[in-house]
Design a protein around this nucleic acid. Structure first.
Lengths: 209, 209
DNA sequence: TTGTATATTGACCAGATGGTCAATATACCG
DNA sequence: CGGTATATTGACCATCTGGTCAATATACAA
């Protein structure tokens, strides 16, 4: 294409169609078990056309990961040093529960990548994550130092929030089977957020906001 | 074979060699992405010999799942109705943290299976799980009814314990990256158990035993 | 309309995949 | 020893895999 008419946020329409199809398919079975053919089928185009936009499978997968991280970061809430810890953590928990609900496939794709050793995740991304945890930990530690909450390991607290919220996206099948439901409903999601916020905050010596 | 000398707990030595190799390999990349050839290589035998013991890949995978569940169930702690909830939940959390440490590959294999929709998990197994959760929930509910702990949803409490403990096995790569460690050490595992027990118990209005 | 850059497509390739089979080797029993 | 049930093995097959390529179609600028 030689004009901008076809561009949406800097990328072709077709490019994004393929990316969407790839996210969906990679999240089902992970990188290796997903074939370029099924991605092409889902996108409704011949396989050779996928290779026209993405030079190979590895490249497509990395672009998928990057694309997801952008969405992820955009919806990530920041917590501030001078905030009330109960308010900040409550908001953080609720944001992650909703993210697991609205972006469940992305969550599963990521979970898959990490379970299998995060071989395709760039080193710089891992460093980003490390830095993110370090920043939040420092804020939590400051709350502890000023006696606003119990002395709990901040890093493990972050892990606890991550794991308990993501569980509902990654293990959706198991959760729905046990709850005997066909799918999540919005009110259930609120109930989950209420439960996690209540237990985790009280567990840190905080009162629900 | 026509004698029992080769039998170990009703199964051939070779049979178990293959099963071990299969557990290891399936846990790396999941069902579809794992080839019979790499399983054979790990077992140190030709691929055709694997097919002599297991009629096909699907069959081998199911046997692997069953084998894991047996080990799993064997090391599963029961909680009793008349127990002190703090003692019982503390023991449950510690048992699961240790299990995630000693049987990390099994945990990952299972996580993988569930993330991908639990297509290979038999219906009866899902029912078993449902019943297990129902039983434990009833005990937790009785603790709540007798005022021994806060009124929290028992099922979500079980999910919280599952997710937070399993996280350290399934997302090992991520956890170790963030903690800047090469591998888990036994004392770290105890620290994790202490943290989770402390926060979750307090979060339910219980005092650490 | 025509020329040219961009897109689309089916045919094709080498290698890997799950699975089969007949030939051979091994172990045990009489 | 010889006979027979059990194991082991390499060769083989149809199908699928990621990836390439030349032929064609489309869009647009002049």
């Amino acid at each position: 294409m030689r004009e901008n008419r076809e561009f949406i946020l800097g990328q072709t329409r077709q490019y994004l169609t393929i990316l969407d199809a790839a996210i969906e398919e990679f999240s089902r079975l992970g990188y290796k078990a997903t074939s370029m053919q099924v991605i092409a089928n889902r996108a409704g185009i011949p396989k050779a056309n996928v290779h026209y936009y993405f030079k190979n499978k590895e490249n497509l997968y990395r672009e998928v990961l990057n694309h997801i991280i952008e969405v992820w970061n955009a919806s990530f809430d920041e917590i501030q040093n001078d905030e009330d810890p109960a308010v900040a953590l409550d908001r953080m928990i609720r944001a992650k529960v909703r993210l697991s609900y609205t972006h469940a496939t992305a969550s599963r794709l990521f979970a898959n990548e990490i379970i299998h050793g995060a071989e395709h995740l760039g080193e710089y991304l891992k460093q980003d994550m490390r830095q993110w945890v370090r920043d939040k930990s420092r804020i939590i530690q400051s709350w502890i130092d000023t006696g606003k909450m119990d002395p709990v390991d901040p890093v493990h607290l972050i892990f606890l929030i991550w794991s308990s919220t993501q569980h509902y996206a990654d293990f959706e099948t198991q959760v729905l089977t046990i709850l005997n439901r066909a799918e999540y409903e919005s009110e259930m999601i609120d109930g989950i957020a209420d439960f996690l916020s209540q237990v985790i905050l009280k567990g840190c010596g905080l009162q629900a906001p």
